[in-house]
Design a protein around this nucleic acid. Structure first.
Lengths: 241, 241
DNA sequence: ACAAAAGTGTTTCATATACACCCATGA
DNA sequence: TCATGGGTGTATATGAAACACTTTTGT
């Protein structure tokens, strides 16, 4: 079924003598995902119990093998469903980690992704799946994670913080309808610092990224907040020059 | 030698029944590189003759297999040396292309990179290597390239254009010492539009990205130009917010 | 009436843009 | 002296940052 005929005529495959298939197919392909959600006004990552005895009692990122019949992205989705009962969510490729010794058990190349979940999507409900993970505030993540998952997480955080500044990815951390305060808290949670309310609103509204839904939400004993939605579908890039 | 023991206890590898090693190592890992240089005030890409008969008479990107003992980056460097006699250069990971059918001969997952060469480094000199490539102006690239290399090139160009705006990657397309006019032409070539000379210089000097070397260069019958170098080593990110 | 969160404007400062002429050199 | 590319400044407009009070609701 996945026994494919590899001949060595491709520019991407030329070599002086034709290698045997064993030499070509030497690595295991994996997919590890850094899943984020917002909770209690903070950014959280999904951590998973690791069973490899080398990393006894350590946690790591959810992930798993890529199958012959699926892309790296499809594998990421599948493993999130399997490990966390997570469905939906937004996925974006992060980086491919190919260090020769990154896995203790042999050559494993990992295509890492970032996943973002809206609050409703982010419940860990293992129905048919065994749920072995927990959401952990990014500031409380154990210093050491299994494998090179520290590095993957660090890379993911840097990327998320960079991209939230010039894209509308933040939308995938929020429900369809949200208040401007919720949007501001989302930015603050990811960036790790506070923003001025008036300037924030001026900027967001000025860019016409969001539109009023006309609906409002009342939260306890206070003035009702207008509900907004993102004006255009998908993640858009904000022109900076 | 590359017979590694893969057991299925990793969080990244759990599955209901343990697959055999053959099933785990099903894909060929490749590395394709989009190599850029500046030449005649324009941006050029390195294209290579493709030997796969499915893509008869088509060109593609330089690339090749990743070996069991090297990272994706090391493979990229090795193949650039092999195919183009190119050494040195700056390399940055672009994206991993894992579509199941992207290669006609079976499952090949490609970790693509962007490579930037300074004018001196960018000569195609096949010494021990067979040189089968040519530098092609980005605007004259054939509409159809082999495999999914159109998409890889498009992705690379978008990334390069984005990153030149908020980093100092452009340094790797220029010699160590350069005039401000050369720097401006580099930006214009990559971005594809002209810039105002006075505003450009004000901005570059204001950011203190470059420093005068004290040396000058005389070009024909005109005033000598001051030579600059980048002030700090490596690619730095320019704060935009 | 009060507590709690929503909403709103102005001033100041820095950066972006538009634009045209003089300078140093080799031929 | 002329042709060639190098180098410079100012005025205007736009966006960023700092900053505090009023509004609407539930209790």
């Amino acid at each position: 079924m996945y026994s494919v005929s590899i001949t060595v005529t491709h520019t991407s495959m030329s070599s002086h003598k034709a290698p045997k298939e064993d030499e070509l197919r030497f690595a295991v392909l994996a997919s590890d995902t850094v899943a984020f959600r917002l909770h209690n006004n903070g950014l959280e990552v999904l951590l998973i119990k690791v069973e490899n005895p080398v990393f006894k009692n350590m946690e790591g990122l959810p992930g798993g093998l890529i199958k012959p019949t699926e892309t790296a992205e499809q594998a990421a989705v599948r493993h999130l469903t399997l490990k966390g009962g997570l469905s939906g969510g937004y996925l974006e490729q992060l980086y491919t980690f190919s260090d020769v010794d990154r896995d203790t058990r042999g050559r494993v190349v990992s295509v890492a992704h970032i996943a973002l979940f809206e609050p409703d999507e982010a419940r860990l409900e293992g129905r048919e799946a065994q749920v072995v993970g927990r959401w952990c505030p990014v500031n409380s993540v154990p210093k050491k994670l299994a494998y090179d998952h520290d590095i993957i997480l660090k890379t993911a955080l840097a990327r998320l913080r960079a991209r939230i500044e010039y894209t509308t990815i933040v939308r995938h951390l929020l429900p369809k309808e949200f208040t401007l305060t919720e949007l501001q808290i989302a930015y603050e949670s990811v960036l790790g610092h506070e923003l001025d309310k008036r300037n924030f609103r001026k900027k967001i509204l000025g860019l016409e990224l969001v539109a009023e839904t006309g609906r409002t939400r009342t939260q306890g004993a206070s003035r009702p907040a207008a509900l907004y939605k993102f004006a255009r579908p998908g993640v858009q890039t904000i022109e900076i020059l």
